[in-house]
Design a protein around this nucleic acid. Structure first.
Lengths: 333, 333
DNA sequence: AGGCGCTATGTTAGCGTCAACACGAATCGG
DNA sequence: CCGATTCGTGTTGACGCTAACATAGCGCCT
């Protein structure tokens, strides 16, 4: 702030009304004479008046600010979510404060920071939810919506339908004649990883296919690359990777082993990040609608705040995007 | 907030002191008796007291909140920056509010939102700076640090040394015997793109190499893929791509044209995103230190806010990471 | 005509915090 | 041993805003 900021009193004086009337105009109260309203609005424009959120927050106890707790933004999915949440919050008139969790920082800590800042509610993203304890939630007294977490009536939950997405991926592979589908799973403890794994198993069971041992990665492309040799020696002809980045590493590992994709091995990813269409070969993957997910999470939170709506549970569907990394099962060579 | 929040007065009563003394303890004033301080701290702990930032902001005019203006989080670089900035801000005791700019939204608009929210200062990321007008800055009366923008004394500027990074990439290629190096540039209007292009030209000139026509992309892998055929028909044996994502697309395009990397064509990227090591082949690229960049930006901003430090200009160096996408120039075939 | 209800506006008070000042007690220099 | 300084603490008021209540003017019913 460079100079003295313009307050309601300044506007009131210029418009020849009381501060309270200015307040009513600002907040869109219907009980204001159109003429008066016009006069006040003119005064606001002339003076460049901006309401002072801190003062309003002090008086009303509401900050019109949402918090977002996220473990890391290194994963492309999380960044996309953040953007979706930021946009949705802005369009609802809320500011967004971001808190990242170091690998060691506790969720309780993040809640403390948010509670102190006085956010009206918070959204917690996937990996962070795994470190969430009921006690933390209660302690902070925050209204919460968590994304990609098991259903829990203490707070709103919005999830992508990971299992259905995984099933569609595995079925696609099975339909192409592969005897079974191997799985490059996400880290233990991740809800999204567990759900995708569940979908994989379900699709295999439904088709009566053998369920091979799975290999576990940590979402990074490096871990995908590291898993390639294990998968290949296990004789995999089709692999469902739990995210695109691991699929990318896997693609490299398979190529380095001299095998062709999709000629000898088919690969499917999950997320449909922007780059996936330019992997080599372009990746068949399960498209996740991050924008819808973010919008739903914000909507659930804001409805809870403004209308006291009860904690909701919502599911966002996925869609299989077939590109060039999958093909019919090759005859044994 | 579930129940009545604990205020300073509550703590004061329990500790048997005045509110002002509690305030002094909270703010670390030296004029407090150690015994009293201990008593107050015990009371705060017992009551679970948290200062109310809105009230403090109202009184002091400072919110301990920083704003971040970013055009999009779709690019991996921006996400990394956001994380770096969030962490740096948190460690300095500031909250971070994120505002994204739609492709059409004006920067002035974002500033309005931030000014209303009362942030103490704001950081503006790269692409967003290109839409920044002096008038906007003045109008908002915000203290500003911009990242990756031309030097400007009206606000702090922190930049990666794009030109030097680009030069090191081009020199690496030239040293391997390539007669010249083609450039897959970023979009016109981007400061980072312009600087990388400048470095590319400078390295070519210094070596007396011919400066071929450049091809322009838009940072996406899709645009990199689209540029492949043009580059190949121009006879390129070495290409410096302005970022990793475009390099990824280019790699696919080259492979689809039946050419080998690095056997026939060498490719260098810029950014060193996490996935680059698992591109096929692993990408030689210019490493950008996003964490340092974010930390410097926050430091410059906070120093300005707290100590009235003048607008600084800082440069963060890069480092060439040689992997497998570059090799000696092949004899004409 | 009196009174009722409605509308448009004003008045009062206080949200939690901290700057400025006030004040008594301890400490110190001469 | 007294005035001046320092130290630890308390009192007061205001930051900008809005909830709650108060008031004045109007039309309309009985």
């Amino acid at each position: 702030m460079v100079d003295r900021r313009v307050s309601m009193a300044d506007v009131a004086e210029r418009a020849g009304v009381s501060g309270q009337t200015v307040s009513r105009v600002v907040n869109g109260s219907p009980r204001v004479d159109p003429d008066t309203r016009a006069r006040v609005e003119a005064a606001m424009a002339a003076l460049g008046y901006r309401p002072h959120r801190a003062a309003r927050a002090l008086r009303t106890g509401r900050t019109q600010t949402l918090g977002l707790v996220v473990s890391t933004l290194a994963s492309v999915g999380n960044s996309r979510m953040l953007q979706a949440v930021a946009d949705a919050a802005a369009s609802r008139g809320y500011a967004l404060t971001v808190v990242t969790l170091g690998p060691d920082a506790s969720v309780a800590d993040a809640f403390e920071r948010l509670a102190e800042q006085g956010v009206d509610g918070a959204i917690v993203l996937n990996e962070a939810t795994e470190r969430l304890r009921g006690a933390d939630v209660r302690a902070a007294g925050l209204r919460l919506v968590v994304v990609d977490s098991p259903r829990d009536d203490r707070f709103g939950v919005v999830v992508t339908d990971h299992a259905a997405g995984a099933e569609s991926a595995v079925r696609h592979l099975l339909d192409m004649g592969h005897p079974t589908v191997h799985h490059l799973a996400g880290p233990a403890g991740s809800f999204a990883a567990a759900e995708r794994e569940r979908g994989w198993r379900a699709a295999l069971d439904a088709a009566g296919a053998r369920v091979p041992d799975l290999v576990r990665g940590d979402w990074t492309s490096a871990s995908g690359w590291g898993a390639a040799s294990t998968l290949l020696t296990a004789g995999a002809t089709a692999v469902f990777a739990a995210n695109d980045q691991m699929a990318l590493g896997l693609l490299r590992g398979i190529a380095e082993a001299g095998r062709d994709v999709p000629g000898e091995v088919s690969v499917v990813g999950f997320d449909d990040v922007a780059d996936a269409a330019d992997y080599r070969p372009p990746l068949t993957t399960v498209h996740q609608d991050f924008d819808a997910l973010g919008a739903r999470a914000v909507a659930a939170l804001v409805d809870g705040i403004e209308a006291g709506a009860p904690a909701a549970f919502e599911t966002v569907p996925t869609r299989l995007v077939v590109r060039a990394s999958t093909g019919p099962s090759a005859p044994a060579r």
